[in-house]
Write a protein that binds this DNA or RNA. Structure first.
Lengths: 199, 199
DNA sequence: GTGGCACTATGACACTCGTCCTAGCAAGCC
DNA sequence: GGCTTGCTAGGACGAGTGTCATAGTGCCAC
C-alpha cells in the first residue's frame, strides 16, 4: 500500500541508513539526514509522521530487509560455504567502503542499540531482520544435510560473529578480523560438512 | 601517581559505565552521569578535564581493563572450556542483571561505536581491551597444546561472537542466543581439543 | 482558469547537550 | 587569626536536538 513516490522518502531512508551506520542512532541528527538526502526539514514529518522512531523502523525494514533478501537469495541457490563467503564479502565491503576503514557499521545493530525505545518497536524491527537472516542460513545448512539443531546453532553463530566482528574491526580500524572470522566459520562448516555428526 | 581519592571520580566512572551499557555513548548525558554518581555537575570537569571523551576512555581503561583482568585470571588457571563458560556466564549475568532482559550491554563496545571520535582515542582504548582479552584466550588455548594460528583464530571468534550475541540478545530481549553461542564455542573447542590438527 | 492537493521550505518552541565559570565551603599550613 | 588549596554546587552560554506550524510552490483534475 501507499508508496506513492520513490523520491524523497526513499532518499531520506537511505541517508538515514548511511548515517546510522557511521554514527549510530543517537549520534545521528534529523537535520543531517534531510541535508544528506537533499530534502527539506519539514518533509521528514510529512513522510514519517512518527518522527525519528518511524524513520528508524523504516530504515530497518527497508535496508535491513534488503540485506535479508540478499542473504535469502544467496542461501537459496548456494552452498553454505558460498553463503558465508558472500556474507563476509559484504561486511568487508561495507567496512572499507569509504577508504577510511571502520567508519561504517550495521544500521540494524545501530537501531537495536538505540537509547530510547519505549515501546520496543526499534528492537522488534531489528530482531525480525536478524531472525530472517538466521533462518535463511540455517535452511541453507539443512538443505546440505545438516541436522536442524546444528544448523540453527551455526546460523546464530554466524550472525553473532558477523555483528561482533564489525565492532572489533571498527575499533582496530583494520578489517583483518573479518577474514579471521570468515576462516573460522568456513572451518566449522568443513567439520560439519562430511558428516553432520553431532548428537 | 595521582589517584588522590577513590571517591567521586570512581563513582562517576562506574555510573558512566553503567549508562554506556544501557544507552550507549551518544545516548548518555553527562548530567545523568553525575546524578547517578551523586556528584556535582561541576565536579566532572574537575576530575576529567578532557570532558566526556576523557571520561569515556577512563571507563574503558578502568571497567574494560577490569574485565580483561578477570578474563586473564580465569584463562591463566583454567582450561579453555572453563574460560569460555566463565565468559558466557558473565555476559548472561550482565544481560539479565536487572530483570528486564537486554537493557544492558558492553560499555567497551558502546565507546567503540561513539559517533564523534576525532583523534581516535576512544576507538584505540576499546581496541586495547579487545586485544588483551583476545590474547588471554589465545594463550589459554596454546597452553592446551593448540597451534598458535588456530588459537588466535578461535580467540578472535570468541570475542566477536561474544560482542555480537549481546546485540542479538538485546534485540530479541531473550538471552537464549548466548547459550547457543556458548554451545557452539564449546563444540569447536572439543573438535580442536583431542588433536589441534589444522594446517 | 480555478480549486484542491502533495509537497517544500523555514521559522519557532521547548528542551537537552557539553562546556565553562564563578561563588561557596572545608581543611591544612603558617 | 589569615591564606592557599581541593573540591562542591549550580548558574549561564551557545549550539544542537526533535518536533510542530505555517507560508509558499508546483502540479493535476475539472
Amino acid at each position: 500500500m501507499s508508496q506513492p513516490a520513490p523520491g524523497p522518502r526513499l532518499q531520506m531512508t537511505l541517508a538515514a541508513a548511511e548515517l546510522f551506520r557511521e554514527r549510530g542512532y543517537d549520534g545521528t541528527g534529523l537535520r543531517e539526514v534531510v541535508e544528506r538526502a537533499g530534502a527539506a526539514r519539514g518533509a521528514i514529518y510529512h513522510h514519517f509522521p512518527g518522527g525519528k522512531a518511524e524513520l528508524a523502523t523504516t530504515v530497518v525494514d527497508a535496508v535491513g530487509g534488503r540485506m535479508a533478501d540478499l542473504v535469502e537469495q544467496v542461501c537459496a541457490r548456494s552452498t553454505p560455504t558460498e553463503a558465508v563467503d558472500s556474507l563476509m564479502d559484504y561486511i568487508e565491503k561495507v567496512l572499507v567502503g569509504d577508504g577510511s576503514v571502520g567508519r561504517s557499521g550495521c544500521p540494524v545493530a545501530a537501531v537495536a542499540l538505540a537509547a530510547e525505545d519505549d515501546d520496543g518497536a526499534l528492537r522488534a524491527a531489528a530482531h525480525a531482520v536478524f531472525q530472517r537472516i538466521r533462518t535463511a542460513i540455517a535452511d541453507c545448512l539443512r538443505r546440505d544435510g545438516i541436522g536442524a539443531g546444528t544448523a540453527e546453532e551455526f546460523a546464530t553463530m554466524a550472525v553473532a560473529s558477523a555483528e561482533g566482528v564489525i565492532i572489533l574491526a571498527r575499533a582496530a580500524r583494520d578489517p583483518a578480523a573479518v577474514r579471521t572470522v570468515r576462516r573460522s566459520l568456513q572451518w566449522t562448516l568443513q567439520q560439519l560438512g562430511p558428516r553432520g555428526a553431532r548428537s
